[in-house]
């Protein structure tokens, strides 16, 4: 078996995954494309394992691990997608633009819970677990507001 064949297939598969990640709007399709890329990596791992005749079978074991991690990733990713969907009624990634500046974009909705703060005018709520120093009273108010969410 020439190693080049599976490697080329893997490279092409990876590129297709890249295209999917970059071009798809639906978050679930983006997740699928990520799976494609992971599979390309898996193929690479297996091929090199076979080619190098690894005694520890590192490539194949790692492939198994990647599969497991991919499963976990899909689980978490879908949970996030669902949570976004619950709050926004949409999972189009190009409409989730809370990272952008306010005056450029149309004032979209609130920050999704758990995905970081968004609205500059809102002071971070005085939660019970609010950490001591709030660094920036104006602007993002990022640090003070992020802490409680990271605690979850």
């Amino acid at each position: 078996m020439h190693v080049v064949y599976p490697l080329v297939v893997s490279a092409l598969l990876f590129s297709i995954g890249v295209y999917g990640v970059l071009a798809r709007r639906n978050a679930i399709l983006v997740l699928m494309s990520v799976e494609l890329m992971l599979n390309a990596v898996n193929l690479n791992l297996v091929v090199f394992d076979v080619w190098l005749r690894d005694r520890l079978h590192g490539g194949q074991v790692l492939t198994l691990f990647v599969i497991v991690i991919a499963a976990a990733e899909v689980g978490l990713g879908l949970a996030i997608v669902l949570s976004v969907f619950r709050n926004r009624r949409t999972i189009d990634v190009d409409r989730l633009r809370d990272l952008s500046e306010r005056d450029l974009m149309s004032p979209t909705t609130a920050g999704p819970p758990g995905s970081g703060p968004s609205g500059p005018p809102t002071p971070p709520d005085a939660g019970p677990a609010a950490p001591g120093p709030r660094p920036a009273p104006s602007g993002s108010g990022s640090a003070g507001a992020l802490d409680p969410s990271e605690a979850g």
Partner: peptide, 14 residues
Amino acid sequence: PAAPTTPPHPPDPA
């Protein structure tokens, strides 16, 4: 429906 007017509430301390 699209919750555009929901004030940006801070992340809930879980």
